[in-house]
């Protein structure tokens, strides 16, 4: 459905994507995770044909997306930069969206519009940040595009609306399967919806695995520093916190049950590491931690 091979995008000397490769299957929900400036938005814009890659191969619906009408008609990118005409009302915007998207479900759009208490004659520009996100989400859901992409969809939404959004997305996906990509900083609030997670760092794919595997990707070990050191050897550490001779260390989980039993016998506490934490540890910079900023004064 989507295939990227060594895709690079540079903007005036800045590299936004650096030989990124990935494949996304039809009718799955993928979470795109990365820090600010990791290249998430650039990737999503290339997939929907809004900008052109500098080099590499991109295929969406077996077509090169840039300036492609078929890709345009069958995909939607929902983000906070969506621009709508301010000369017409929100209600008219919904009607116009129906002319653009062949699968548009006006009934769903109006039900959501009503549920979230929008005024039919309000103007898009006059909405607050969170309300704009909510309205854009309605457009994204009701368009029922075979490729539906949400870039940071919950910006400004309150907790109740965020919850409703994820639930609405899941229900509509079950009834009308399509390929969905959601980028977000908040993996924890949407992880139950995802089938796959694509983690990118500095324009390059870092990890692309099923959500369930990400949850078991790492384990946390807590115990005497000396014991942990001896047991782990020089295995790369995802994160480490120490307090006198005690330490908490998160590492990639390459151990079998027997090994974990052994380490438990030595008084080490073994705990799971949440998917959100795994992503945070994997994508943090090489500059040490925030503490170092203060220490070096």
């Amino acid at each position: 459905m989507i295939s990227c091979k060594h895709v690079t995008k540079t903007y005036r000397g800045t590299t936004a994507l650096n030989r990124l490769s990935c494949n996304i299957h039809e009718n799955t929900i993928t979470g795109l995770i990365g820090r600010n400036a990791a290249g998430k938005t650039t990737l999503l814009k290339i997939l929907t044909g809004m900008i052109k890659e500098s080099s590499g191969e991109v295929e969406v619906f077996s077509k090169h997306p840039f300036n492609n009408l078929f890709v345009s008609a069958n995909s939607i990118l929902v983000d906070d930069q969506m621009s709508f005409a301010n000369s017409i009302s929100l209600y008219e915007l919904l009607q116009q969206a129906g002319r653009f998207y062949k699968n548009w479900d006006m009934d769903l759009a109006l039900r959501l519009f009503d549920y979230f208490s929008f005024q039919p004659n309000a103007i898009h520009e006059g909405l607050s940040k969170g309300r704009k996100s909510t309205f854009n989400m309605i457009i994204g859901l009701a368009s029922r595009c075979p490729l539906t992409i949400f870039d940071e969809p919950t910006t400004g939404m309150d907790a109740v609306v965020r919850n409703d959004f994820y639930r609405a997305l899941l229900k509509d996906y079950i009834a009308h399967p399509r390929t969905i990509i959601i980028s977000s900083h908040h993996l924890d609030e949407m992880e139950h919806l995802l089938e796959h997670v694509l983690v990118i760092k500095k324009g390059k794919e870092l990890l692309h695995i099923p959500m369930e595997d990400l949850k078991e990707y790492a384990i946390g070990l807590e115990g005497k520093t000396a014991v942990l050191k001896e047991w782990l050897g020089d295995q790369p550490v995802l994160t480490k916190r120490t307090a006198s001779d005690y330490a908490y260390i998160a590492v990639k989980n390459d151990f079998d049950t027997e090994q974990l039993e052994q380490v438990k016998q030595q008084g080490v506490k073994v705990s799971p590491v949440s998917a959100n934490d795994v992503c945070m540890y994997l994508t943090k910079g090489q500059k040490g931690g925030i503490d170092d900023v203060f220490r070096q004064r």
Partner: peptide
Amino acid sequence: QYTLAEMFNINPATAAK
């Protein structure tokens, strides 16, 4: 898998697993 996904608010692929 779809009924379970809807009931428990999870991805249908997870329910299928």
